[in-house]
Write a protein that binds this DNA or RNA. Structure first.
Lengths: 190, 190
DNA sequence: AATTATACTTATTAGTAAGTAAGTATTACT
DNA sequence: AGTAATACTTACTTACTAATAAGTATAATT
């Protein structure tokens, strides 16, 4: 694969990710991507034969991103609260982009997704929930955090606050998301 | 309007609501509804000229439903915890139907919705958040509930737990939703 | 009884979707 | 230098989308 092709393939993926988060799986088309890149519709099919392949590629980049973040967080010389803040920041920036998180995007379109994508989505969700749960468990063990729920359950609570928080804030305004974050951080601070 | 027509119009709306919750705004078509009702595509356009009108009709039924529920809850001779449970039950049943809540459904498609729909969605969201907030405030005043956040903020936290909870549970299984509900009820019990 | 409104069907249109086959220019390999 | 792979474009197909115009049967109104 030449460098030009790598660029195009990466560029397609980057735009697909943005469109996924802004519009959802069923509301963007190959034509939208082609227009932005000034290439033809069929050029995208060359790199990603079916829309299913494109979506698999999108999910893969997030799996890699969160695997990378997970490893970074374990080793990072920062407090557990700061680690969670790094994670929360990923959600906060979405609102300014009029976007929602990729998990929320695929979750609402779930019934229309191909089986291969569904399986990969489940893998991504498990990865993220576990990463947050481990950060929470670690923080509590170190006495940096305090909460009474099981780490896995607390992770579910925080994840749902964030995922639906950005969905809500896109409609009602960013302040609602900020209030949610403030409250959930206050819940786990020691 | 004859009775037959009322039946058809109501039936269209009922199916549209189901499709919205299962597939989302952009993933269902007039053909899907027509097929289920054994009528022609154009018959739906007779009752709802544009898809925008159909979606406005769908949101309206939910606004009416929650206005009704809100009035019922104020007068009902049950505890605040039971009132919240009635609300939570509305979300629990969605999972078995492989559906998500209407707010979550329109929230993820928000950028593709007509302006008229967006305004009505905001009205619905405000209504629901306020209803939950008032139930929470009332319960705390009566000593039935205990939480440290402002009622509006606690309402946001619970709403996001529920909305994203059903989205998540459709993928990972109902148990995750049950765990979320158990934990959030435990947080506010006195 | 005649007229009109209601609730549709039939038939069609314009637009857009994903996807494909065949051709072409460029680059890499032997 | 010749061959083959890469990265596209051109041109097209099939299928589906919302939407509309025109026609029809039935029911309500005058």
């Amino acid at each position: 694969m030449s460098e030009k092709s790598i660029d195009t393939k990466t560029a397609i993926l980057t735009i697909a990710k943005d469109l996924m988060k802004q519009l959802g799986y069923n509301a963007f088309s190959y034509a939208d991507i082609a227009q932005q890149l000034n290439i033809k519709n069929a050029a995208i099919h060359y790199h990603y034969p079916a829309k299913e392949d494109l979506l698999l590629g999108v999910i893969d980049t997030y799996i890699e991103e969160y695997q990378h973040l997970g490893k970074q967080l374990v080793a990072a010389p920062i407090s557990s609260l700061q680690k969670l803040s790094l994670f929360i920041d990923k959600y906060a920036v979405l609102i300014d982009q009029k976007s929602i998180c990729i998990i929320g995007s695929v979750a609402s379109d779930y019934n229309t997704l191909p089986k291969s994508v569904r399986e990969k989505v489940l893998k991504l969700i498990d990865l993220v929930i576990l990463m947050v749960a481990q950060t929470l468990a670690d923080g509590r063990a170190k006495g940096e955090l305090d909460f009474k729920e099981e780490p896995k359950v607390k992770s579910l609570l925080i994840m749902t606050n964030l995922a639906a928080g950005v969905q809500l804030a896109r409609i009602t305004g960013k302040n609602d998301f900020n209030e949610i974050v403030k409250a959930l951080l206050d819940q786990i601070k020691n």
